[in-house]
Structures are given as C-alpha cells and as structure tokens.
Write a protein that binds this DNA or RNA. Sequence first.
DNA 1: CTGTTAGCGCCTTCAA
DNA 2: TTGAAGGCGCTAACAG
Lengths: 357, 357
Amino acid sequence: MSVQRRVRLADVAARAGVSRTTASYVLNGTSAQMRISAETEQRVRSAVMELGYRRNRSALSLRTATTQTIGVISDFVATGHFASQMLRGASAAARAQDHLIVIGETEGDPAVEIQMIEEMLDRQVDGIIYTTLVTAEVRVPAQLRERRAVLLNCVDPVADLPAVLPDELAGGRSAADVLLAAGAGERVYVVGEEVNPHAIAGPQRVQGVEEALATAGTPLAGVVPCFWDVEPAYEAVTAWLATDVTPTALVCLNDRIAMGTYQALAAHGLQVPSDVSIISFDGSELAGWLRPALTSVRIPYAELGALAVQTLLDPTAPTTVLRSPMTLLHGGSVSSARGYQSSGRQPTRTGAGRALR
Amino acid sequence: MSVQRRVRLADVAARAGVSRTTASYVLNGTSAQMRISAETEQRVRSAVMELGYRRNRSALSLRTATTQTIGVISDFVATGHFASQMLRGASAAARAQDHLIVIGETEGDPAVEIQMIEEMLDRQVDGIIYTTLVTAEVRVPAQLRERRAVLLNCVDPVADLPAVLPDELAGGRSAADVLLAAGAGERVYVVGEEVNPHAIAGPQRVQGVEEALATAGTPLAGVVPCFWDVEPAYEAVTAWLATDVTPTALVCLNDRIAMGTYQALAAHGLQVPSDVSIISFDGSELAGWLRPALTSVRIPYAELGALAVQTLLDPTAPTTVLRSPMTLLHGGSVSSARGYQSSGRQPTRTGAGRALR
DNA sequence: CTGTTAGCGCCTTCAA
DNA sequence: TTGAAGGCGCTAACAG
C-alpha cells in the first residue's frame, strides 16, 4: 500500500468552475502575467483549500525533471556529532527552500557509493552534496563531475565543483591566540598527529598554531604524536609526561584527544588549567561534559551543511572553495593567569580536587 | 539545472530492435511469464548496458504511485549518537530493499512536523517512520493514521500502527543481573529520575532493576534523582555522597549520568569499580571513553532502525509493538569480586590512581 | 511472443 | 481568459 492522494488538479478546476489551464496558472503564480481575474483566482484557491489539494510531485517531476530534493552522500557511519549537526544544518536550509533531503550512507564502500549516487540520480535529485567525515582531499566519483554537486568537508583538485570547508588555518591561529592571551603561550605542545596523507584539517590546524605562536615569538615547543582518539591520547601523553616535560599548554587536535589528555594529566597529578592549559578542536558535546569544561575551537558543522545546501541551490554559485569560520567554544580549560576571560559557559567548579579528570 | 538522464526506454527498444513493451517486460523481470525469447532478452540487456540506460523513476512513480523511498520523521536535533546509529541501521536496511531514505528533522516543532510529512506525502514516499528521541508515548499527527507508517522508539496508544522499541524492561533486569553476578547487588542505588510523564524508558529500566533485585532478595536501596545529563548527575551524586551513604553499586539511567557520577565519585575519593560498581544504559561511544570503560546496557539503535524499515516494507506486518533486545556492552566498571568476567573490551589500566576519573 | 494503445497528473504552447 | 492537444517516460491491458 503506497501513500497517495486522490484530488487532482482537474478536480480543483471543476470545483472552481474553470479550466485546468487556469487552475494551473493560479497554482504556479503565473496568474498575474496571464491576467486571470482576482475573483477567478480566489475561486481556485478556495477550491484548493476545500479539497485539500496538493500537486502530485511525481507528475510534476516527470514534466519538469525537477524534484525539490537534494541528495547527501556521506562516507561516515557512527559519527554522531558530525553527521547529526551537519544534517541538521542542511535539513533546515533545505526546508527553507522547500527541498527535502535524501541520505546515502556509503559506509566508506566505493561500490555502495556509486550505487547510492545512481539511485539518487534515478530519482532525479536536483543536486548532490558529497561529504566526508575526515576533512580531506578526495576524488569524487565520475558520476558527479558533470552534475550539480557540492563538496562538503572535502575538496577535489580535479573536479570543477564548489566546496565548503571549515577555515582550519584561521581556527589554528585562534586556538593559539587564546593561549597567548591567557599568558599560556610559552611552552605549547600539540597533541595528535595526522597520518592520512590526504587529510587537511590536522596539518592546517598545526600550521595555524605555529603561525600565531611564531608571530608572538614563542615557537611551538613540540608535538606529541598520537591517533585521534581518547585512549591513544591517554597512552601517548602518559608516556610523554614520564619524560619530565613541563608544558605550559597543550593544543589537542580534537576533543577526544583532549579527553585522553585530561585523563593522563590527572593520573600524573597535574591539574587543568592551573598546571596546564588545554585547548582543542571540535566543540562537540564532549567538551561540555569534561571537568573543567573544555575550551574548544568549534567546527561549524551545521553552518557547513547549510552553506552546502545554499551553494547547491544557487545556480550562480561559482565553483570555488568556501571557508566557514570556526568559532570559539569557551570552557574553563585555559588558564586565566593574564586575565583571559572565558565569556561563554562559566568555568565553574574548577576548584582543587574536583578538577581531577 | 537539474540532474537528469537522456536515454529512454524507447531508445533501448530501438537499439535492440524490439518494441517498448518487450523492453519493459525484460526490465521488469516479467519476461519469463511473457515468454520472451532468451535471445531477445539478451539483446535488450545488451542495449541497456551499451546505452547506460536507467529507468526514469519520476515516470515510474507517476505510473505506479510508488517511489522506493521512505521518509523518516524525527524530532531530535543535535543528538549525535541516537540519530546516526538509527539512520545507519535504517539506511542499510532500506538499501537492502532498494529504497532510499528521505529525512525530515522537525526540531520538535509540530508545525514543521506536519509540513515535513506533507512534503513527504507529496513525493509519494512508500511509507513513513515516525521517531522520537525520548522513548515515550505520543500522539502521531493525524496524517499518519491512515497511512503506511511505523513508530520508532515511541508508541501511540490510539493509532493502530506498528511500533519498534528497545526492550527496556529486560534491559533493566540484565543491568541488575550483571551487578548480582558480580556480587555487587547488596546496596544498589539508581541514579537519574524521569520527569517526562510520557517517557517510558526510565520507569521501565527502574522496574526491571527492581524486579531482578527483588528476585535476588536484595531490594533496591534507593534512588538519587537527577536530570539525565553529566553536570546534573555530578551535582546530585556529590550532594548525595555528602550524606554518608555507602553504596555497593550504582545503576545510572544513561551514560552521561554515569560520566557525571564518575566525576563525583572521583572527587569524593571513591574508585570504580573497587569501591563502587557502576552500570548504565545507552552503550554510547562515551562508555568506551571513560576510565575505566563503562559497562552499559546498549540501546540497539541501528537494529531498531533496520527493524522499523523492515516492518514498514513488509505488507503483512501486524500493527503490534516489537521489542528489540538491549545487549550488554562490557567495560570495567563493575567489580569482579565474585568472579564476574567482563567478556568484551578488556578493562585494562584500571590500576589505582589512574582510575580517578 | 510482440506491437498498439491508453493513460498516470501536470505544464505549456497554440488558437479561439 | 480559456479549451484543446501534446508530451514528459513508463507500465499494462489488449490485441495480434
């Protein structure tokens, strides 16, 4: 049993006592230019109301080769934060333009990816957003090359398609700036290391940090390499602390690394932020759950999603790379020694003993 | 500019030197029953290949009032874990049956909800999954009543629709069973309290816990009421610990509550699991990030999503409530005093000092 | 076995 | 202003 409607445009026309053509004109807003009398138009509109008429989009699509639907192809699976935020932004932007979003989770399988794109093209989507979990350089499937598509969180150097990305470089700089402003810019280390050669977030963040620190005359003290997750960060930082280093601040490349770092510091008897300041990237829910709350450079997922939709739906959009600014999510993980004030969430309950996590 | 194809069925037929009808039969797999020669069929298939033909779904939809598309209406926004896991399961199940999923995030706004459903019905979705973030009793919009729809994570006592839910009661029992098996069943408290009168997860979990404990002759020692989030749990447990209680184990109603509880226990100098065992519900990523890793009764989101899709697509499915089992995600947060063995992740690195978080 | 025909519901000339 | 007519691409009787 499929969901369908009964009322046809013909019924509306009959009820209004006009021709289908006239009814059609009214519905398309072409009534003015067709010089349809206001009275007639009103009759049609009443009929639409009374009958609860809605156009049949299948018929419309067949006729216009348009569906008011956009596809989102993504390679990520269980990545809660990214996926939902991005889809939320995209969904809202799509709704604002009367479009619906159809999703295609490829689970990273290129064959599935191609299949999903085909399915979407079959359904005449008006365009496709191609997005990846990891900010990286990619090669989009050939199917997308000649079509209306926008890359989200990735770029393809050979395909001539618009792309939407976070401004990682500026994000890196602002992370360092926060530390500098707090007077915690002397011995700054980065925790995390990018291993994917196509990834661009990590390198750009580090570059931004280095630039800002260099400008202040306090070069980056070093890097603690580790995979981007809680446990690897815990292990790496624990081992590193055993070498008797005395960091002023740590820049963690994402919030999960920061969590592992909190754990390692706590185990080593170091407190955040009094002993060590921490700042990271993501601005996920996790940042708010930690104690003290983590100061994090937020990835504007929702904005990216919305921007991608707007770009896709804008026929005049150039095929350039758009960089969306990363904003600061204030927590209490950066020392306020030199009067740096967190203006967002209150870094309450940061007292000794309780901060041990 | 919309994405569209060129090759029509007529082209394929022409290329194969047959009529459109014949080509159509081959494509629909009706060739056998129409007794089309294998040779002819082969010619058609070749033509399809050579021309890269794919049927135009808009045309198909207009003709068959079917779209091979299902809609998912959800009220949740930034809820990473739930949303993505559920969509992953639903997406995979849909793909297995050649369906695509179109999403409708209502952000909890009833007006948006109605609008989204209309948009979906306009697009002739074959059915709609109506899902809510909080497991609860709801009243679905009237539009859904008469249509092919399935409720996911909620029930509507008056609408005659199938519903898919986690088996919270059994989940509650198994949580208590884990504690009992570990010899930590003597002074068990529940942390968290449901305030939404329509919610069903909380009450059922507690009921399950109580039943299992009662069976073992060690009734629930009490409840520490708090909102279901990290900070409220931290506050509540901290205040509660100040009253000199000596819990054997805590059942946290979700993983975020458990995180806040970890924090409060650490601040109070109590260790998990040597001093207090902890078990919670959700089985989210967070459980694995905590130290020691949290033992949690997993909500089978992906399975629920898949089940909902299968139910929706099965014309013979009865309009009953399906309960999906909650499985145990093993961590190291439950004492193994009496030889209880966590069989999943290794609860490594649980040594003194490091467990303080 | 295969071709002919008639719509599915809607938009859009073209004439009137 | 409006009616008639064609056609988007495909399926499904109904004849051959």
